[in-house]
């Protein structure tokens, strides 16, 4: 019996149509069906944050959403926001601060950091730490990440003033 479901969605601005098994999560759909391997899978139970993407503008865990649920949605991944330049200041700040080592948490970290700064551009380091605490990084000890996000927050604030 064919239990697959047809879905159509926009991924990083590109229309995509596929048939998927209902049990396929959005992260695996992005990684294996679309070969957008920048979205990483670290725990598959919503704790580590490595699979964080945006769906219709909202930050979500792609391991806790089924691909079928993204039918008709706008999905944005690290590949998309890198392409548009939306997070280029964060990427540059991360590179300069060495706010990544192995890089596995980095796509989720960047998307989360960007959302924090959208919501609270003047967030201080303590607020940034709280807001990033759903994203696990084993390598850095977080300080360089917090510093980089804080620095970008300040720079974005100066630009918009």
């Amino acid at each position: 019996m064919d239990t697959t479901v047809a879905i159509e969605l926009a991924v990083n601005g590109t229309p995509v149509g596929r048939r998927v098994e209902p049990r396929l999560c959005l992260a695996d759909f992005l990684r294996y069906d679309l070969e957008l391997t920048g979205t990483h899978v670290g725990c598959e139970h919503g704790v580590c944050g490595a699979c964080t993407v945006r769906v219709d503008g909202a930050l979500v865990r792609a391991c806790l959403m089924l691909a079928v649920q993204a039918d008709g949605c706008r999905v944005e991944t690290i590949e998309g926001v890198s392409g548009t330049g939306e997070v280029s200041d964060l990427q540059q700040a991360f590179a300069e601060a060495n706010a990544l080592q192995c890089g596995f948490c980095t796509p989720g970290m960047l998307l989360t950091a960007h959302e924090i700064l959208q919501r609270e551009p003047g967030a201080d380091p303590a607020r940034i730490r709280l807001a990033l605490s759903g994203n696990y990084c084993r390598c850095t000890g977080y300080q360089a990440i917090v510093d980089a996000v804080h620095r970008v927050g300040g720079a974005r604030g100066r630009e918009t003033r």
Binding site: Y32, G38, T39, S82, E96, N98, L100, F104
Partner: peptide, 21 residues
């Protein structure tokens, strides 16, 4: 000096073993 390969990792263009097909 800044690690050159971070540009790749920051753009989601790293190739970890599960990315190999």
């Amino acid at each position: 000096v800044v690690r050159p390969q971070t540009a790749r990792l920051l753009a989601g263009r790293g190739v970890y073993t599960d990315d190999v097909r």
